[in-house]
Write a protein that binds this DNA or RNA. Structure first.
Lengths: 238, 238
DNA sequence: TCGATTTTGTCCGTTACCGTACAAACTGCA
DNA sequence: TGCAGTTTGTACGGTAACGGACAAAATCGA
């Protein structure tokens, strides 16, 4: 995480970081480092994905959108992954929306360039397959979590997951926003947030949270956080 | 679906059916047609997957299992797909459980043989990537569905999905079983089932349902059924 | 044929969460 | 400084679903 632990090729993204120089060389053609801030759209349902993104810092969100516009988060992507798996799968579009959430940067690569490289069945394709497996676990677990766990538990999961991907213990977050990600009422989040604050686990002021006690949050969260985290660590490294 | 609509290579499985003869030839080594009945285990959480299965008829279930043993369904697999994606992804195990549900048969292939073939990056790998994209949509949609839709809606989705994969309009199903798949109380399913029966959409007797009015069920179901079905049809064919 | 088991019907009090609404508190801009 | 917009606190009645329990009905096995 610190500068001195960076590998030679200079990437922080855990997928790019592990790729052989030759692959990186071919990807460079369509590659560009971009700064991204909250709400930047990455792809829309049923629109062609022109680029994929390998986050270096910050975080992106992937959402399922219903016809009435309601949406809930199905996955988040940080420096361990890539936004744009459908490109890898050979699909031009997907039914999901993706946007950037926690300010940061990412290497953006032309969909066509990435696709060409993955079709060689080399290191990149292997890495993305492993990553796919991890995301699968994440989404499956979420499906179960959404069904069986309380707002408070799911709230804690979300905070922990985001904390993992942010530099420091503080980040921007409104109750309104979190409620939409979790697919609940804003008031529900406000109540939970107040409880967590009273318990000394977090502190928050208008649109900004601080994680005060990670251990405590982990205790309140359901097992889903640990399960998913474990899968990512073992499949994508670190 | 009838015998005379079978393609020349004789497979009903929509993935195998479309593969070139050369690929099938190489897969034959580790391939065997097996009959499967309800509850047959296919793989267990954190145990090595020895085989993958390409269903010819009937259906399998994939479940997320929590530490306390509670489980809910995250995906179902019929003749459009394959059970054992983690093998394709290069993982030896996964956090999910899979078992057979609606009696039928499947081509079982040694994990190692399948894995070797997919690493050639040819037709099989392309097909499985497309299939992965469809399953992704399915699981994502389920995550959202589990969060936002009523038991009645989800119940109808499940019945429709299963109906698609069964020969005829009748199949075995207890309220108890369905409640576990949906992650709700058995009594909840009983109430919904009674409502649907009164409305003339289904009929059921001890452990066996008959679909009487598909159109009607589709109206009660949430949009999730149609969304997922559409994705499968466009990506895997038929 | 009878008892045991499985499956379904039904009921009860309880709870988590919903939808909605409104006011208070804070922030930013003119 | 004051006004508008954003964010949070809180309260309310309403409801879907829960956990648990028990009995009726159908089926199976001995």
């Amino acid at each position: 995480m610190k500068a001195n632990s960076r590998p030679r090729n200079g990437f922080r993204n855990r997928i790019l970081k592990r790729l052989p120089a030759a692959v990186i060389g071919r990807l460079r053609k369509g590659m560009r480092l971009v700064e991204l801030t909250q709400w930047d759209p990455l792809y829309e349902p049923h629109e062609t994905c022109k680029y994929v993104y390998f986050p270096e810092s910050g975080m992106a969100s992937i959402l399922s959108v219903l016809k009435d516009g309601t949406m809930t988060e199905v996955s988040t992507v940080g420096s361990e992954g890539m936004v744009g798996l459908p490109v890898f799968f050979g699909a031009k579009t997907s039914a999901r929306r993706a946007f950037w959430q926690v300010p940061g940067s990412a290497y953006r690569i032309d969909a066509a360039v990435l696709r060409r490289e993955t079709r060689k069945c080399g290191a990149l394709s292997d890495a993305l397959l492993r990553y796919t497996q991890a995301v699968f676990t994440q989404v499956s677990q979420l499906a179960t979590c959404n069904r069986l766990h309380s707002i408070e538990q799911r709230c804690c999961c979300w905070l922990l997951q985001t904390h993992d991907r942010v530099a420091g213990d503080e980040f921007d977050l409104t109750h309104e926003f979190l409620s939409e990600m979790l697919g609940t009422r804003r008031a529900g989040v406000t109540e939970v947030a107040a409880t967590l604050q009273r318990a000394g686990l977090i502190r928050y002021t208008r649109g900004r949270v601080t994680i005060l006690n990670r251990r405590g949050l982990e205790k309140v969260a359901c097992e889903c956080y640990a399960t998913v985290r474990g899968e990512f660590d073992s499949l994508v490294g670190r």
